[in-house]
Simulated assay, not measured.
Amino acid sequence: MKLDLQNIPRRSNLSKEDFHREYFEPRTPVIIEDLSRDWPARKKWNFDYFKEKAGEIIVPLYDGKPASGRSNSHGPARKIPFKDYIDILQVGPSDLRMFFFNLLKNCPDLINDFKYPELGIKFFKKLPVLFVGGEGSKVVMHYDMDLANNFHFNFVGRKRVILYPPDQTGLLYKVPYSIVSMEIIDMDDPDLQKYPALAKARGFECTLEHGDALYIPSHWWHWVKYETPSLSLTLRSLPTKRSDLGEVISNLLIMRNYDNLMRKLKGQKWIDYKNRKAMERTHRYAGIK
């Protein structure tokens, strides 16, 4: 058995009208190869440039270890200057990742290096964010809590991405009271004997190179592996449907707070309970005994 994945289509010279009709409205992913072709970032953004522009900024770093016991699932592993983190990335493999580095807040000069694409999309311009990771680091399968539409521009390095649409959620071992799959599952080489429902799920994959822009529709699951040290920019468009907005509020105000409270009260027993329920629900949905 192996994962059922098809390649995400690649397009160039995609008009605003074609993007809406073929991808945005049906919520289908696409790689737009030339969306950043006239941005200064396409030529300027590399690790040396960020050492110069943002090297002294203290950044939180996250590792690949699942949260355990009563620890907060969102806590950083360490905090160091950006330049020191870049040094770590350039030495060799590292599971340390930096995400949601807000350019507008931390390094506003860099917003002059890019512009918001004219795709007929209302972007959330207060949150242009960087994602950086070391060779071999991985991001657990998840969807975004705020259900944003993501436009993910890769500028340094190479990364592999796996996507699944929302209608495949029942097969992905979703953990209750969360927006993640079971953290123990390695989507790079999943144990399909232990997690057979994954073989039934139908998804998409791609490898992002320099200059590629990946459109990840709202509510789509995504998993990422940094094949090399990589730096990417994500521009976000928030959902507008009333049903989506209701789910966002529930995710942020109810689900997340409840999960953190139960972690504090029950510790590892709560995590074990959620993982057990994820297995039971997924296998029941997939008809696996």
Score class of each variant (00 low, 15 high):
85 Y>P: 01
80 I>K: 08
163 L>N: 09
98 M>F: 01
135 E>I: 10
79 K>L: 06
106 N>P: 00
118 E>P: 03
117 P>Q: 06
109 D>P: 04
129 V>M: 10
105 K>Y: 07
74 H>P: 00
87 D>W: 02
138 K>Y: 10
151 F>K: 01
117 P>A: 02
143 Y>D: 03
161 V>R: 00
105 K>F: 05
99 F>M: 13
78 R>Q: 15
149 N>Q: 13
82 F>K: 05
125 K>H: 08
138 K>Q: 12
103 L>K: 07
101 F>I: 02
149 N>W: 08
136 G>Y: 09
110 L>A: 06
82 F>C: 06
75 G>M: 11
110 L>K: 06
75 G>K: 13
115 K>W: 04
140 V>W: 11
105 K>P: 07
162 I>K: 11
152 H>Y: 15
74 H>T: 14
149 N>C: 13
75 G>D: 14
154 N>D: 05
139 V>R: 05
95 D>Q: 12
117 P>L: 04
96 L>H: 09
108 P>R: 03
136 G>T: 04
78 R>I: 13
106 N>I: 00
113 D>M: 05
116 Y>E: 03
135 E>R: 13
121 I>S: 02
158 R>W: 01
151 F>W: 10
97 R>S: 12
144 D>L: 03
161 V>L: 04
136 G>C: 10
133 G>R: 03
109 D>W: 04
95 D>G: 10
84 D>I: 05
109 D>V: 02
79 K>Y: 00
77 A>P: 02
120 G>N: 03
78 R>H: 10
148 A>S: 14
160 R>Q: 13
162 I>L: 13
152 H>R: 07
